[in-house]
Simulated scan of single mutants.
Amino acid sequence: MNMNALVWKRPVSLPPITQHEVHIWRVHLPLVPARYADLWQVLNEEERERARRFHFEHDRQCSVTSRGILRLLLAWYAAGEDGAELKPVSLNFRYNAYGKPELPGMRLAFNVTHSGAMILLAFSSLQPLGVDVEHMRAQSDLESLARHFFAPEECAALLALPAEQRVQAFYNCWTRKEAYIKARGLGLSLPLDSFTVSLKPGEPAALLACTDDKRTPADWSLFALDPGQEYAGALAVCPGPSPCVVRCWDWHDALF
Rank of each mutant, 00 (worst) to 15 (best):
M1P: 09
M1G: 14
N2V: 05
V7K: 15
K9E: 12
K9T: 14
R10P: 08
H20T: 13
H20K: 14
V22E: 04
H23V: 06
H23L: 10
W25M: 07
W25I: 02
W25S: 02
V27N: 03
V32N: 13
A34C: 10
A37R: 14
D38Q: 09
D38P: 01
D38H: 13
V42S: 04
N44D: 11
E45N: 01
E46P: 00
R53L: 14
F54M: 06
H55Q: 06
E57R: 14
C62H: 09
S63T: 12
V64I: 12
T65P: 10
G68D: 01
I69G: 03
L70R: 14
R71P: 02
L74G: 07
A75D: 10
Y77W: 13
G80C: 09
G80A: 04
E81M: 15
D82E: 12
E85F: 15
E85A: 15
K87Q: 14
K87S: 13
K87G: 15
N92L: 15
R94V: 14
Y95L: 13
Y98T: 10
K100N: 11
G105D: 05
M106V: 11
R107C: 11
L108R: 08
F110T: 01
L120H: 08
L121M: 11
P128K: 11
L129C: 05
G130L: 00
V131T: 08
M136L: 07
S140C: 10
S144V: 04
S144H: 10
S144Q: 12
L145T: 04
R147M: 03
R147N: 03
F149A: 02
E153W: 01
E153A: 11
A156C: 13
L158F: 00
L159T: 01
L159P: 01
A160D: 14
A160P: 09
P162C: 09
A163M: 07
E164W: 04
A169V: 03
F170K: 00
Y171A: 00
C173M: 05
C173A: 10
T175I: 05
R176V: 05
A179T: 06
Y180M: 08
I181M: 09
K182I: 08
A183D: 00
R184V: 04
G185Y: 01
G185W: 04
L186R: 11
L188W: 08
P191A: 10
L192F: 13
D193E: 03
F195G: 01
V197W: 02
K200I: 14
P201S: 10
P201W: 08
P201Q: 08
E203N: 04
E203A: 12
A205F: 02
A209R: 15
D213M: 10
R215Y: 13
T216K: 13
S221P: 05
A224I: 06
L225E: 03
L225C: 03
Y231F: 08
Y231S: 02
A236Y: 07
C238V: 10
C238K: 11
P239K: 07
P241M: 03
S242H: 15
S242Y: 14
V245N: 13
V246I: 11
D250M: 12
D250S: 12
L255F: 05
